[in-house]
């Protein structure tokens, strides 16, 4: 039982990271109908920005955090203008390939600037964690879980109760109709890219003290987050959260009770099962219904 509790905590913690990155996938997909394969690199770039501000320039942690997120907002805007906007009237394929190209560019730019050494980023708290009965709660995982919960609440409020949120929803549902109603579609898409970059960046900053800051950190998380998105139902926010959390829990328990070396296989086995038996995911609508 103690064992299961510890595993559950870690599973939720790592799952929350997948969920955060998955949210970024979903938001961009809803707004533009393309998958942004550079979403993982947003996390990586943000973690490196933290290293620049908090470690190299020795700025206070909170200030570094805000500066890094501001940097990510800027990157999101540049990404939209440089990668999506010029190709917006093309089919989804050139856009997806452009995002893959952008992800390679980002990874190698960081490699060129920062070198290949993995970096250490301290966590937000001085204490590494607390012992709660039989379970050790890593303070960084606690922070990740809290941040994910807060963001989900924020996102719900933002999309359902603000004008910008409603405009964003309208844009993602039907661009032509939205633009007929006087919504600036390209502004809404710009907002989506900025928000997704900040979201991905947040995931990267939160997870960096646990996984270390490396060039590969983004792609490893993004792959799982992508799987989580499909499990949850592509384009569904609740689905991304549920998908991320369940993936984290499934792979942690699978590793503990079945096989450690096949840990990643459990995640992808679940993905394959979903693709075969329920391709629209847990919360997704059938494509035919949406059309």
């Amino acid at each position: 039982m103690d064992l299961a509790l510890q595993l559950l905590f870690t599973g939720i913690g790592i799952g929350a990271v997948y969920a955060l990155v998955a949210l970024g996938f979903v938001l961009i997909f809803r707004a533009t109908n393309v998958v942004n394969f550079a979403q993982g690199e947003f996390s990586m770039v943000a973690a490196y920005l933290m290293v620049v501000f908090a470690v190299d320039l020795a700025l206070p942690y909170w200030l570094s955090f805000l500066l890094s997120l501001a940097g990510m907002a800027l990157l999101g805007a540049v990404f939209n203008l440089g990668v999506y906007y010029p190709l917006r009237h093309r089919t989804f394929l050139p856009v997806i390939i452009a995002t893959i190209g952008a992800s390679i560019l980002m990874a190698n730019s960081v490699l060129a600037i920062y070198g290949p050494q993995p970096q250490v980023l301290e966590g937000w708290f001085e204490t590494p964690g607390i012992q709660l009965g039989p379970v050790y709660l890593d303070s960084q995982y606690l922070l990740i879980i809290a941040a994910t919960a807060t963001l989900v609440a924020f996102q719900y409020w933002f999309f359902e109760h603000t004008l910008v949120g409603k405009k964003l929803q309208a844009t993602s549902q039907d661009k032509e109709m939205a633009s007929l109603l006087g919504i600036s579609v390209s502004t809404m898409i710009m907002v989506t890219f900025i928000y997704s970059a900040v979201l991905g960046g947040l995931a990267g900053i939160l997870v960096a003290p646990i996984l270390f800051v490396s060039i590969q950190m983004g792609s490893t998380i993004a792959l799982k987050a992508f799987a989580a998105t499909i499990i949850g139902g592509f384009g569904d926010v609740t689905g991304a959260i549920i998908g991320g959390l369940s993936l984290g829990i499934i792979e942690t328990f699978g590793a503990a009770y079945v096989s450690v070396p096949y840990k990643d296989a459990f995640a992808f086995l679940v993905l394959v099962l979903f693709l075969v038996f329920r391709p629209q995911g847990i919360f997704g609508e059938r494509v035919a219904e949406k059309a």
């Binding site: 064992l3 510890q6 595993l7 870690t10 790592i14 646990i210 996984l211 590969q216 490893t220 998380i221 942690t252 590793a255 503990a256 450690v260 070396p261 096949y262 840990k263 990643d264």
Partner: peptide
């Protein structure tokens, strides 16, 4: 005698198995 796959993000199951 425990194997693990490279680039694992989490070793909690492994640590717990060693502990037990």
């Amino acid at each position: 005698d425990q194997g693990y796959a490279n680039q694992s993000q989490d070793f909690t199951p492994v640590v717990l198995a060693i502990k037990q």
